[in-house]
Design a protein around this nucleic acid. Structure first.
Lengths: 144, 144
DNA sequence: TATTTTTGCTTGCATTATAAAAGCAAAACA
DNA sequence: TGTTTTGCTTTTATAATGCAAGCAAAAATA
């Protein structure tokens, strides 16, 4: 057994890979809010500590979920961009969104509900593609 | 903001609820392997420590994902059974299974692949129902 | 009935993950 | 030429998880 995996179960192994407290949150903020820099990510609603953000970005890059580049006009700011592998997590993120939206209102009164989750439920597969294309369009715009 | 939730995002809140290292693993072992007792769960492939298992079972019961009962013929053994709320996590678990199966073979050579995930991919919604009914049938049998 | 084994835990301690706050160098800006 | 911004690192504290042992009540066995 690989040291980083508890066993040979694909579900448990997926959790070993991206099941920490922050990885999917960072990826979600890149995907849905187009956050791309260290500063933007550190200022997101979840208020991740900068040392944790730093270590998560390194880990996500090592694992191939994101890539780190510098824009041509700026030597300081790094851009963190989701790779195809990062985008492959969209179906998981959508299911988490639907589940949270459906099951957490009673215990979490201030939960955001101004989102189109009812539409997403009607055709999940379609929205996987929609979110992916939206993201890729946005990246293409930025890296002009 | 509720103290147990980082923010109002349903995705982040879902992770706050079930995004620890063990909750979904325990639920998966109940769902797919019909594990029902403390002993069975402690002997699963993932080798959870008994103190962690104990605290997870308490937490999952408090949150309404499982219920704890004693079978009529045994005063010692407890049975932990998934509730409807616990079963509502099936779509998330299925996406984790598909993602792990599709994306982890290269980094995890001993990953289990003797499962019907290719079929599941073809009709996810259907298999949510299939797994739920299989589980409920099994529970009905046990609690005769 | 007496003894052994099993079950479902708890306790204590070690390690790893996360958090909070401050600091800091290089680049960008004024 | 300061001053601010960015992208971190460092330090120290707390929380989550892991490991090993222990233990009482119930069940199984002799």
């Amino acid at each position: 057994m690989n040291a980083e995996f508890r066993c040979s179960c694909p579900i448990t192994s997926a959790i070993d890979m991206i099941g920490d407290k922050w990885s999917l949150v960072v990826i979600k903020n890149m995907l849905f809010f187009n956050l791309k820099t260290f500063k933007e990510l550190s200022e997101a609603n979840e208020k991740i500590a900068t040392n944790i953000l730093s270590s998560r970005l390194k880990g996500l890059e090592e694992k191939g979920f994101i890539s780190k580049t510098k824009p041509s006009n700026n030597k300081k700011t790094n851009l963190y961009i989701l790779t195809e592998k990062g985008l492959s997590l969209i179906p998981i993120i959508i299911e988490l969104a639907i589940w949270g939206d459906t099951n957490l209102q009673n215990v979490h009164p201030s939960l955001d509900r101004d989102n189109p989750i009812e539409y997403i439920k009607l055709n999940k597969e379609k929205f996987v593609g929609v979110f992916k294309n939206q993201y890729l369009d946005n990246v293409a715009e930025i890296t002009l």
